[in-house]
Nucleic acid binder design. Structure first.
Length: 252
DNA sequence: AAGCACAGCAACCGCACGCAA
DNA sequence: GTTGCGTGCGGTTGCTGTGCT
């Protein structure tokens, strides 16, 4: 009996598209488990959903990506990583699948070649730049940093704080630059880790969107390299600590 | 014209998450 | 607390079109 009922796979026919479109126009999106039977399509529900989301849904843009879309996509990817659905949410008319495909075929190659170029350049830079590891200690007073990340109030560092090897400041610019690009629905398991050092949900979302947050405790020590790795995707053409230092200088 | 290689894209698969029972 | 179900997401696969030899 089981062998006689096989779900169709592969490319969709025009007839199937019409049936699916009619069904969703009539009953609306959702209840995907009912869609195949309602529409009279011999496809699995996942296949129906995918076909609708990536191809049949109204307002879907077909054709190549415009320059501004590519630019935004690259910025969002830098910020969010491979969270295609989030990126798609910021590109009207584009689906996560579209973006993923475009990235994998066009931009990924571009990035690879870019990285190899940078590696070549880095060889030259390495000859003159002496890397001096600067230990950073997470103190209890680091909570001010978190407050700073989520507030627009001015901040005055405490002079008596010797736990931080180098005073840090972060302005709301950081938030402004990133927050507008982020969706407010996504938060992974990073929140529990961030709260351990007093960073709230909002801050962790900004700092570690798309990444597992670093597991650091009060009193932990880490150097530039390790933190730069953590913040690699968050960097805006400068290292994370350079960014912090620049922000600090602006405050002075 | 035929064969091959490659790129682009649609679709599939497996996993994770949220929610209700 | 756990189980099962529905849903969504990201990685991967495989088909198709196109260009080159």
């Amino acid at each position: 009996m089981e062998g006689t009922f096989r779900l169709r796979k592969g490319a969709w026919t025009e007839e199937e598209d019409i049936l699916l479109r009619r069904c969703i126009e009539k009953h609306g999106e959702g209840n995907w488990y009912q869609v195949p039977s309602r529409a009279g399509i011999n496809r699995c529900r996942k296949s129906c959903r995918l076909r609708w989301l990536n191809y049949l849904r109204p307002n879907i843009k077909r054709g190549g990506f415009k320059e501004d879309e590519v630019d935004l996509m690259m910025r969002l990817h830098k910020l969010l990583g491979n969270r295609w659905s989030l990126i798609a949410g910021r590109l009207p008319g584009r689906t996560a699948n579209d973006i993923k495909n475009y990235w994998n075929t066009h931009l990924f190659k571009k990035k690879i070649s870019c990285i190899s170029d940078m590696k070549e350049k880095a060889k030259d830079i390495a000859k003159v730049n002496v890397i001096k590891p600067r230990p950073r200690t997470v103190s209890k007073s680091l909570t001010w940093l978190c407050e700073k990340l989520t507030t627009t109030e001015s901040f005055e560092p405490e002079d008596n704080d010797h736990n931080i090897a180098q005073p840090l400041t972060l302005s709301e610019n950081m938030i402004k630059r990133s927050d507008g690009l982020l969706d407010h629905k996504e938060l992974g398991d990073e929140r529990t880790q961030c709260t351990r050092i007093g960073i709230d949900d909002e801050t962790s979302r900004v700092l570690w969107a798309g990444k597992r947050a670093p597991e650091i405790e009060v009193g932990d020590t880490f150097d530039d390299d390790s933190l730069s790795c953590l913040a690699a995707d968050f960097s805006f053409d400068m290292s994370f600590w350079d960014f912090l230092n620049a922000e600090q200088e602006m405050m002075i």
